[in-house]
């Protein structure tokens, strides 16, 4: 079985601040990490591989600048077999539509995949669009928000997370599944895996614009229909108040507070 995993290198938004004037992310000094949901997708792929290491091949695919190789090395050190990086200035500035065109073209070139796994969304853009768009462009079925995945032959049974419950969806390979954090706990890298990855840089293949079947009007900044006019951090809400004491005391405090504000 051949599994493709979509991965993206993103700024670690845990430590990110935004410039209150321009609304832009302060990227300086912010470490780059493997997008957390993508780590869940990779873990799902590796768990499938753990059960049948000889017959399951996991390839990680990403689009980004050369420095994204660091993140791909991390994926290799966790246990992926190899990786593909789509990297070219002509892909630069792509929105989700243009990105999914490029990645779908890369996947089409790989060809013989059975299963594609990706994170639900990236923590920098938060669109959750690229995965579903790739599936549409490849013409394969997709299931989003997977919190459990079971494989039986060519049949994949996915527990799909909803806000107030879940759906069980059965789908045939080849298919695209996007994964949420509840699916699993990603493993760490392995010390030997890190050494192997850096000793064998040829495990990462870089494809340029010319290596995949795509036109300039399908990818890159000018091909992107979405324009971000502004982004901003919502003003923080006022700090909440924790009531303490017995149930009766807390109710009394709450009632007093509501009356004071003339809500009741």
């Amino acid at each position: 079985m051949k599994i493709l995993v979509c991965a993206k290198q993103v700024p670690n938004t845990k430590n990110v601040t935004t410039d209150p004037v321009t609304g832009r992310i302060n990227r300086e000094g912010v470490e780059s990490i493997l997008n957390p949901d993508d780590a869940n997708a990779l873990e799902a792929a590796l768990e499938i591989k753990d059960k049948d290491p000889e017959n399951v091949h996991v390839t990680v695919i990403s689009m980004g600048p050369d420095q994204a190789k660091e993140m791909l090395n991390e994926c290799l050190a966790m246990g992926a077999d190899d990786a593909i990086l789509l990297s070219d200035r002509r892909f630069g500035g792509s929105d989700t539509w243009a990105t999914s065109n490029a990645i779908a073209a890369g996947m089409a070139k790989v060809g013989d995949y059975d299963l594609i796994l990706g994170g639900r969304q990236a923590i920098d853009g938060d669109t959750a669009q690229v995965g579903p768009q790739i599936a549409e462009k490849l013409g394969i079925p997709q299931v989003t928000y997977a919190e459990d995945i079971k494989i039986d032959g060519k049949t994949v049974t996915v527990k799909r997370q909803l806000e107030d419950g879940y759906e069980i969806i059965e789908v045939q390979m080849p298919c695209f599944i996007t994964c949420v954090a509840e699916l699993n706990t990603p493993r760490y890298m392995n010390v030997g895996g890190i050494i192997e990855a850096y000793d064998h840089p040829e495990r990462i293949t870089t494809w340029s614009f010319d290596d995949v079947d795509i036109k300039q009007e399908e990818t890159g900044l000018k091909a992107s229909p979405t324009n971000v006019f502004t982004s901003f951090a919502p003003a923080p809400k006022g700090a909440g108040v924790m009531l303490e004491g017995t149930d009766q005391e807390m109710v009394d405090q709450l009632m007093a507070s509501l009356k004071e504000k003339h809500y009741i």
């Binding site: 493993r187 392995n190 010390v191 030997g192 895996g193 050494i195």
Partner: peptide, 27 residues
Amino acid sequence: ARYGFTGITIPKEYGGMGGDFKALSIV
């Protein structure tokens, strides 16, 4: 053991990771 910390400097042919002393010192 699973993540390879027990055999950092032990050669690969003996089940280790084949790392160097700097790697061991870092860990």
